[in-house]
Design a protein around this nucleic acid. Sequence first.
DNA 1: GATGAATGAGCCTTCATTCAT
DNA 2: AATGAATGAAGGCTCATTCAT
Lengths: 224, 224, 224, 224
Amino acid sequence: MNSLNPVSFGPQSRRIATAKPGAVALQVQARRKRDRAGKQQALIQAALRLFATKGYEATTTREIAASANCAEGLIHRYFGGKAGLLPALVEDQISKEVVDLGHRVQPAPTMEEEFIQLVVWEVERMWENREYLGVFIPRAIVDPSVRNVLHRAVLSIRVEAVAKRLRRYKGGASLSEDELAALSESVGVLGLVFGFMRPMVLGQDRSRAKEMAAITARMLIQRR
Amino acid sequence: MNSLNPVSFGPQSRRIATAKPGAVALQVQARRKRDRAGKQQALIQAALRLFATKGYEATTTREIAASANCAEGLIHRYFGGKAGLLPALVEDQISKEVVDLGHRVQPAPTMEEEFIQLVVWEVERMWENREYLGVFIPRAIVDPSVRNVLHRAVLSIRVEAVAKRLRRYKGGASLSEDELAALSESVGVLGLVFGFMRPMVLGQDRSRAKEMAAITARMLIQRR
Amino acid sequence: MNSLNPVSFGPQSRRIATAKPGAVALQVQARRKRDRAGKQQALIQAALRLFATKGYEATTTREIAASANCAEGLIHRYFGGKAGLLPALVEDQISKEVVDLGHRVQPAPTMEEEFIQLVVWEVERMWENREYLGVFIPRAIVDPSVRNVLHRAVLSIRVEAVAKRLRRYKGGASLSEDELAALSESVGVLGLVFGFMRPMVLGQDRSRAKEMAAITARMLIQRR
Amino acid sequence: MNSLNPVSFGPQSRRIATAKPGAVALQVQARRKRDRAGKQQALIQAALRLFATKGYEATTTREIAASANCAEGLIHRYFGGKAGLLPALVEDQISKEVVDLGHRVQPAPTMEEEFIQLVVWEVERMWENREYLGVFIPRAIVDPSVRNVLHRAVLSIRVEAVAKRLRRYKGGASLSEDELAALSESVGVLGLVFGFMRPMVLGQDRSRAKEMAAITARMLIQRR
DNA sequence: GATGAATGAGCCTTCATTCAT
DNA sequence: AATGAATGAAGGCTCATTCAT
């Protein structure tokens, strides 16, 4: 079908191929590798960072692509557009949340200590997840459907695990069910407040926030 | 919203034809009211509502102007642009925050009750201010310089007032200075968490959030 | 509200105003005049020309705006987007189609001559309207709803007027109603074919096309 | 579409798992069939249909490839890009246009009848080729170099054949050379107008268009 | 001073084309 | 040779800002 072109249609090609002539061999090698999973992860990570740093709306797809070192079009191919990155972020976060409480934090000898160490651990976790929280808290404020996602991610899944751990202690017997529930929820609440809100929203020094978390936890649990 | 908008006619009807020709001058004045303060307030209120509802970036100056029933250009004339509405919002909020704790909440008979009532009151206050918080929490996450504003608005100004009120009680003698400070701060923290975060960010039912606030407050303050 | 800005929010303005400093006075004067009707017409004319020259899809809003010497945004403000220019084009054409047959073409002495002169006139009209036809014929092929518009514009409105003029002649008595109708329609058909299709679609020389139109018209009307 | 696609399985089922391991090679061949001519035809047909239905610009190479059930890249390999499909379409059309007038339409007893039957036949032909016309008429409007192609395809090649057939009749003696030429051309013109323009561009009912074609043809040829 | 029409930079998205596999 | 993942230029459109009225 090559030479059969007796019918000439004037200048056809409107998009002229870019030459990109002097490209360094290494660069050329770096570009155009087929690594779907890798690119997706890179885009998700870049989006997370940028959304957290500048806000969702203020972040451009151009920036995300540049930061992920891949083409802008992939955002649309993989995630259906900028908006599709948000669910993808959630997915990604969930898939990484395999780490169980029990596997990481050894039970403490007393309930008081147990509670405090759970709070401290949770504060740390929230800090680690500050980028996710920084992206989704603003969205939750504006979009009710995001609130549930956040509620589950931040509180629900923790509460029962914490309650179970606290129930093991004899001292727990003196706690009403309501109080136990309140304590269990407090772990998440204190984690959120002192791990994320204080340093990221209210600008408090992080080590001070951690101290305050411990003090408050102690006050909640200690009885005379 | 005090001295302004003295002539409220419901949805400000514009351009109602009048027969009297001598009324023209007055009409023109009515249409192009020289009511700078009023327009400013209207813009601020409209911006607050819209920013809170849709987010700062997603809100257009057109919408704000339309909602405030005045010209888009005024946003730039009065506030120097869309971004200038944010400091104006803060100013406005501060100017309204003249209401003092003492004038509204009568001291309770016991420190326990006092603490709980302060917390409950604070929860209510945060809920009332949910629009401001909904605007500035997302901005604080993204802009460190906003964090201080928020810290002061949410916590600092309260802490000392609360501490003073708690110190009046003899029972307070058994509290260390650290504990007293922690309690004082807790008022703001619990207010923020149960008054704003729970209902507006985590989607929890508001009455349930209030209950939880009271339970947690009691646990913090009650000792056997 | 000027000096009250004690709360500084870091760098706010993201879009920096363009200076456009050395602009010539004349240019400055040329720009930014308020002339809604004029701009609309300019856009419509520019769109018509470009759509006719390059095709609807191949024409960019950027080009249209540049060609009309106004801002791209106006296309969306006035016409609701690129697609809105098409109905606007039709409107515009209709509003200009006030010229009536009778006011322009004097009746000829015989029906034969009358018919021929009507055809010749119609050929001319179609050539004058070649830009509109060049825009809407391709769209009609693709969008059935456009066909009716075109049908009316090209044929319907003419047929009755032509029939009326032909009926005046005694010689017309020898024509059946069917034949009269066919002749009336033929005016539009011949106009379209020899005024537009031949020169613009089949690349025939225009003067040759006009000759052919006259010959064909004569054959249709002349009887031995 | 003759010799190709010899193994048609309805909607070509891809990747049906087979137990036989020895069939792998055959399967692979089936999936990546080395059927260049077939793929080319499939692409051309798909392009023709889509271009005719949605317009050239509005059709994406993705769609074409999907519709032809082969890879997007082939469009570039075989035709040098999207634009290359247009000449290929013309080629393809020409190669199919081997059918001669004489082989299909038997001469009529009188010249009048002959002329009318040729027109009717041409109307039918244009309708059959409406997809090609729908693709190339819009292009001809925009690209002068296409007009010649279309002129030849629609008119030139017919005229001489028609003239030859009409000359056979004695009645034809009474026609001037000019009139004969005009009649010969009229066959193509009437075909184009009533076979394609009327139904596809002006939205007229096709059977009505055919009637009109016959009436007009009769008027052209019949003399008293 | 107030208005809102006009501006145009920059956004998200599409899609022809390239090229590693 | 065939595939389709990756690319990125360019498109339509939005909207903060400017400025003639």
